[in-house]
Design a protein around this nucleic acid. Sequence first.
RNA 1: GGGCGGCUAGCUCAGUGGUAGAGCAUUUCUUUGACGUAGAAAGGGUCGAAGGUCCGAUUCCUUCGCCGCCCACCA
Length: 729
Amino acid sequence: MIELDKAYDHSTVEEKIYKMWETSGYFNPDKLPGDRKQPYTIIMPPPNANAPMHLGHALFVTIEDILIRYKRMQGYKTLWQPGTDHAGFETQVVFEKKLEKEGRSRFKMQREEFYKEIWEFVQSNKHITENGLRRLGASCDWDRNIFTLDPEIVRIVYATFKKMHEDGLMYRGDRIGNWCFKHQTALSDLETKYEERVEPFYYFKYGPFTIGTSRPETKFGDKYVVMHPNDKRYAQYKNGDTFEAEWINGSIKATIIKDEAVDMEFGSGVMTITPWHDPVDFDLAQKHKLDKEQIIDKFGKLLPIAGEFAGMKNAIARPLIVEKLKNKTLLVKVDENYKHNVNVCYKCGAIIEPQIIPQWFVAMAKPLPDGRPSLRDMAINAIKNKEVEIVTEKFEKIFMHWMENLRDWPVSRQIWWGIPIPVKYCVDCKEVIVDTDDSIKVCPKCQSPKLEKDQDTFDTWFSSGQWPYATLMANDVKRGTKDFENYFPTQVMETGWDILFFWVARMVMMSYYRTGKQPFEKVYLHGLVRDKDRQKMSKSKGNVIDPLGVIDTYGCDALRFALIFSTSAGNDIPLAEDKIKGMKHFANKLWNIARYILANVSVPIPPLAEGGLGGVTDADKEILTKLNQTIKNTTVHLDNFRLHEAAQEIYQFTWHELADIYVEASKKQLADETLKENTQKLLLHNLINIIKLLHPFMPFITEELWGILGQADLLGRHDLLIIEKWPIV
RNA sequence: GGGCGGCUAGCUCAGUGGUAGAGCAUUUCUUUGACGUAGAAAGGGUCGAAGGUCCGAUUCCUUCGCCGCCCACCA
């Protein structure tokens, strides 16, 4: 007879069990036993290779691992495709901070040198991330592990770029975009945020008009004054009229533009425009075909047009310019309490300066040359037709709303850590040459050998947006598999709602574009893990829970169960250490149920599946009914992504039915010779079933107990629990 | 400005057209051999407010009140 320790000790179990799984090969769908035909695939959202483990990792691993383990037990050919992400901008920002601490800067480095260092930095952190996933119990197929900068992936990304370029969806445009001075790169709208500021709002005399602005330092070149066509005050002026206006650095010849974009109620109801540095002004200038002039350079300094202010940072120049205008008696009044939103970089908080800098864009609303709808419309249709379903419908609404207002996507970044844009420009004839393997040495149009490489890299999301098919296609090249054929489209994409637009939307669009199919059938979105007061966890608040530390203290299973226990899809998750502790108690409860059964049951009940199990006493009948209900409900909940309800169901049964009631009843029944054998069978039957039901949630303790039951000769023939059959009622 | 969501026990949250649920916390009792990381018992909620539909509403509809989030953004 095997006697268990009085308490479950996770520290002696987890590493051993994980190794057992990994060497078994069962993470790899090709090595799963039995004749498995139906695939079930989840592409793991690749964690940033450089990011330290946080609870977000623990949450996504737990959810995806539950789904995968569940389906594996149900006999599916399960592939959970892991990978890590170079995370272009994110990683470069982290690395630049590191350089800053060392008193260095990328702007004083060679590009190759910088790239090499950051590559090594990422490679060394990558293993830490991957081992963290192992400690969380992730049953993903490490044989297929892949990195976003692997050459096979890059080739697929380039092929997409080339096709988009040929199809006229990828274009290089002189459009206004967000510019971060600190990082010296363009950013998409998603990568900026608004902050409320109170700043002075100035009214200046401009010829016969009074104009309002919060940014006098951009106004040097302003030579268009815009007013509403219905503005009765200025009915005597016509569109295109000109006049002389005394301005900051002398007299300016100004032109009147009438446009309904002007709000007569705001400010003075009249404005001058700065098309190079303001999106609204830019649109107006495009519409009326007006000149555009750059006032501020890429570093936030005023250009020579600013006269004596040239070379100054705009913030320093502003009060001086106001002072000068005041001395020229052009300052009318100042509103000191003007509250407005300022666009800032989401990483560093530096003010974003709109700039016209040539960037590559993907057309979102342009129909495809092969007759298919635009990228945007394909994604909208996918949701409407339910080819892609987002779990919890509210996100479908949010998704649609965003999609319908989508603008073209700028995909070039002026950063170095990323996939270079595979384009060369002919110095002589300006031809744009797409060269995905660096093989073109002379201009195909004018034969000039003077070619310049595009210096930019892709937005990370341009490559990760292709991740579902790119990983599978890359596997096929690297490993000679038929993964794309076998596993695409995938079944579930599980990720945080915060990257619904960044990532999920892009994956849907690009997948339809490249493969004609949806990348995944379901999207399950999880929330943010917060502390018990619903505060976001952050280092500065000191409320961060380190998942690996928690695993050391309470065990991985306890952490997983706590994360999943009272959360529904899409809602943020408050997690306190108490909760994890409570779930450790639950693991211990399960352990002790097994301990009791091992001490009291000596006969195996082969063949388990072939019945012979019936209730004799009321307690017997009751527990069998409840067990069957639990199996049924758990299965239905899992099928509908209600993981928390499934967890609660099992918890309730295990503790409050099996332990509290039946185990107690069994003590008397075991003493009665006429009931003894049947009671033993029922105890074992219940234990085996809850171990199976719990396995996706608490993989370590269940696998350990399974092994012990096997050693005690209570299971008949058995393999690892990870591939046992899911109970069926 | 547009959109989405929440409001249920002290706390954190599930759930439901038919007499309200869990975990934690609180109180009392119990050291009988599965487990004191436990067991037994108890207290605690007009399910945000008002109206409507219904035999019946915490659940469906409307309005309102707080709270939160997303998107857009005014010179």
